[in-house]
């Protein structure tokens, strides 16, 4: 192998090795001020897969998303997101919706939504077209010219999600996207998310402390434990998502699954 083709062929090898996995996390550890926050995390998320991370607060769930997105750098291990192994390459190539909406108060809904496209150098006209194309399904077409402070919390979260998904990255990270909302709004947004978001081509990682939300949205639930943060269980969600959310949450399978996950979470509380 000649030296000038080495980089290209090694990239090629990785995409072959990981086959369908869009997101590959292997042996990742992270320290904060010498205290271990995360220890040897291994996660692999395939194309079209929706994975939820549940765990008590302080177990490092959000830290893991910050590592995947490239906001933080890991102490050890390797993260590959859609072929990007370097932290600097993942920044801007992984969609990340944070817990807070983080909308810029001086920009309209449309201007906030197209921020990611704007930073990539997409023209205003082109990015506005992309915003308008999705605004309808996001329920935002009537408020595109409104300012963020005129919107309800639920609407603001929709804008934040639209901003995150518009750059159309293959890996999408959601950090408690509905955590700050009231129960009714949260439930309706969860149902809406299932319908509106085409995740068939994406690898999605959702962080939540709401077990029902995890079951409702994800194909696979990873249970985390704190100090140091680690994954202690992995549960496949094999229930029929065709039902609507309220019917689903009444079903026997749903209740059993929820019980199993809660059991896992409370058991580690007792250990701690």
């Amino acid at each position: 192998m000649s030296s000038d083709t080495r980089q290209i062929s090694s990239d090629h090898d990785i995409s072959v090795d990981s086959r369908n996995a869009l997101l590959e996390i292997s042996g990742v550890g992270f320290d904060y001020e010498n205290a271990p926050i995360l220890d040897s995390i291994n996660v692999s998320v395939d194309r079209g897969e929706f994975v939820a991370l549940v765990g008590p607060s302080g177990c490092g769930k959000s830290t893991l998303l910050n590592l995947i997105s490239g906001v933080l750098s890991a102490r050890s291990g390797q993260i590959t997101a859609d072929g990007n192994m370097l932290r600097a390459d993942r920044l801007g190539n992984v969609s990340y919706m944070q817990q807070k909406d983080l909308l810029l108060s001086w920009r309209t809904v449309a201007e906030n939504s197209r921020l990611g496209l704007e930073l990539r150098g997409v023209s205003v006209r082109e990015s506005n077209e992309q915003v308008r194309a999705l605004a309808d399904s996001f329920g935002l077409s009537d408020v595109l010219d409104s300012m963020p402070h005129e919107l309800s919390g639920g609407m603001r979260q929709r804008v934040a999600l639209l901003r995150a998904v518009l750059p159309d990255n293959a890996v999408l990270l959601l950090d408690e996207p509905f955590g700050a909302l009231d129960a009714i709004t949260r439930r309706s947004l969860q149902e809406w998310l299932l319908n509106v978001l085409d995740t068939s081509n994406k690898a999605v990682v959702l962080v939540t402390h709401d077990v029902e939300e995890a079951i409702l949205l994800a194909d696979r639930v990873l249970v985390m434990a704190p100090s140091p943060g680690r994954i202690v269980a992995e549960i496949e969600v094999n229930i029929n998502k065709a039902l609507d959310a309220s019917a689903l949450s009444m079903s026997q399978e749903f209740i059993e699954l929820r019980g199993a996950i809660l059991e896992l979470l409370t058991r580690q509380e007792a250990v701690v």
């Binding site: 910050n66 801007g92 944070q98 807070k100 983080l102 930073l119």
Partner: peptide, 23 residues
Amino acid sequence: EMVDMLRTLGASPWQTFTKLMIP
């Protein structure tokens, strides 16, 4: 957190400066 949000959208330091810090 705003700075981190812009970074995840691929903002350069200059873009962060003009689009977030100055306003």
